Simulated scan of single mutants.
Amino acid sequence: MARLSKKSRQEALHMLLAESPFYTDEELAEHFRVSIQTIRLDRLELGIPEVRERIKNVAQQNHGEVKSLPIEEVVGELVDLQLDHSAISLLDITEEHIFSRTHVARGHHIFAQANSLAVAVIDAAVVLTAAARIRYVRPVRLGERLVAKAVVRETQGEQSKVRVETRVQDELVFSGTFRVYRMPDFDAHASGKQEDI
């Protein structure tokens, strides 16, 4: 990619972040072949907040839409949700997610992000995972950001097949196909849940 003029770069930056708001300044600097400081100045001039604020704004727009589980039970930050169609979440791998000796993420965190997203994308009050076929493609390391995308592939009756692919930047690191079941007449009281007194 040839170096752009400041005006062209800022226009391209604005369009890129409107389409995909979770690029970091470091990733943007690499993409546009400029310094991180230049990207920060561009963002300031354009009135675009830093990545944490952008993610928070997008996540807040999706909080009211999830039906199948409380938003705090979705592993990662939900940044896009179209019920019964697709969803995207982000998970930054921190010290709490890794093996201390290797700095490699524990697999259950990667699975949990994908599984909770497969449940969250379904338009029903109660959704359970019936089966999962998963594949870990490569180890995920401390400091990497996981971008998981769930797509509902098919629905037959109360069951749906949801495909989830998790990437670090553009590299596939995990994939899974989840068969989830909608429980249409679920009674929380019959399941043993007790009322708060």
Rank of each mutant, 00 (worst) to 15 (best):
G192R: 14
S175C: 04
A114H: 03
S175H: 13
R135E: 05
S100V: 12
H108I: 13
Q61L: 11
L16D: 02
V104K: 10
S86C: 05
S86Q: 08
R43C: 13
N62F: 09
F32S: 03
T38I: 02
L44V: 14
T129F: 03
V74F: 07
A188L: 12
R182H: 09
A18W: 03
N115I: 02
S86D: 10
R179E: 14
L90Q: 07
E154A: 03
T166Y: 04
D170I: 01
H63S: 15
K7T: 15
G107C: 08
H31E: 12
S175V: 09
S68C: 04
Q61D: 14
I48M: 08
L69E: 06
F174S: 07
A114S: 06
A118C: 06
E77K: 08
L28T: 02
R141Q: 13
V152Y: 07
L128H: 03
R163A: 11
R179T: 15
I88Q: 09
I39P: 11
H189P: 11
H189D: 15
V152F: 06
A12H: 08
S68Y: 04
L81C: 10
E77W: 05
S89Q: 07
D25Q: 08
V140A: 08
T94V: 05
A105M: 03
V58E: 13
I48Y: 01
Q159P: 02
L78G: 09
F99V: 14
V74H: 05
P70C: 00
H14N: 09
R33L: 01
H109P: 08
E165M: 00
F174Q: 12
G107H: 11
R163L: 09
L4H: 04
T129L: 09
A190T: 14
G47L: 00
R135I: 08
E154W: 02
Y136Q: 08
A59E: 04
A112Q: 14
D187I: 09
A87L: 00
S68K: 11
T102P: 06
L83Q: 11
V168L: 13
K7R: 13
G107R: 12
Y181F: 15
D187S: 14
V34F: 05
A87H: 03
R138N: 05
P139D: 08
K193I: 15
R52N: 11
R182V: 10
E144D: 02
R145D: 05
H189W: 13
V74A: 00
V121G: 04
F174A: 09
A130Y: 05
Q194G: 11
I88P: 01
L41A: 09
T38H: 01
S86R: 13
V168F: 10
V140P: 12
R54E: 13
R9V: 02
L28Y: 06
H108W: 08
F32W: 08
A12R: 11
F99C: 14
A87K: 06
I110D: 04
V58M: 09
V173L: 00
L128F: 10
L146M: 11
V121L: 00
L16P: 00
V151D: 07
R9W: 00
P139Q: 10
V126I: 15
A148Y: 00
V79W: 03
